[in-house]
């Protein structure tokens, strides 16, 4: 097993609070919700398990200091979020359930073949086609199919939720860019202003004067 401190990315001397913070950040990063429509979901689950185990290990070894595990991990069973998506009123429709299962397991091509065999295209059909398209990287098709599903069955919570999650992906990404310092339209940079000033200063100095006295 890997060194639990390395897994969490903290020093062995880190305080309990630091460990906890690192743990929380990683849980957030690998959280199943982040990877709901992603073909790498299994890998994320595995990472999360690793993080959980590491955190358990650390809390256990530190237990005699009485910190306890306080923060119970996510997704211990490894099945996590997918169970929530099975309640759409089509439960008795075994083919759709079968397809859903396949999409969840990442068997995209098999699921697509089954879907293509169905000629009656209900809202659920479009929804599943959309989910599958997203996992395949077909974002345009994904959005349109799920939107069609929403239009056909406007009362279905799951469809609407999925549609907004897809649009939300772009917002979460923008948010994390923003947190790193990115600002839209802020590109005509300060550097060019400085360069201009510097050049102007040099020109003046050549001509015997001075624009910026200090340099």
């Amino acid at each position: 097993m890997k060194n639990p401190y390395e897994v969490l990315g903290v020093k062995e001397t880190a305080s309990d609070a630091e460990v906890k913070k690192a743990y929380r950040d990683l849980v957030k990063k690998y959280h199943p919700d982040q990877y709901a429509d992603n073909p790498l979901k299994k890998l994320a689950e595995e990472k999360l398990r690793e993080v959980n185990d590491a955190y358990d290990e650390i809390t256990r070894t530190r237990a005699n200091r009485g910190t306890g595990s306080g923060y119970s991990g996510y997704n211990r069973s490894g099945t996590g979020s997918q169970s929530s998506s099975n309640q759409s009123g089509y439960q008795n429709n075994t083919i759709f359930n079968d397809i859903r299962q396949k999409i969840n397991n990442g068997q995209i091509n098999e699921a697509d073949l089954l879907l293509e065999k169905i000629s009656v295209r209900t809202a659920e059909w479009y929804f599943l086609k959309g989910l599958l398209s997203f996992k395949r990287g077909w974002y345009d098709a994904a959005y349109n199919h799920v939107q069609t599903a929403c239009n056909m069955d406007p009362n279905n919570f799951e469809y609407r939720q999925t549609l907004s999650r897809m649009s939300n992906n772009t917002n979460t990404y923008r948010q994390s860019s923003h947190n790193r310092g990115y600002q839209k339209n802020n590109d005509t940079d300060i550097c060019s202003i400085c360069t201009a000033l510097y050049c102007a200063d040099c020109c003046c100095e050549c001509a015997g004067g001075d624009l910026i006295a200090c340099c």
Partner: peptide, 11 residues
Amino acid sequence: FILVNCLDQIT
């Protein structure tokens, strides 16, 4: 939507 989703998946 498409372009930023690509970026999101990259990250």
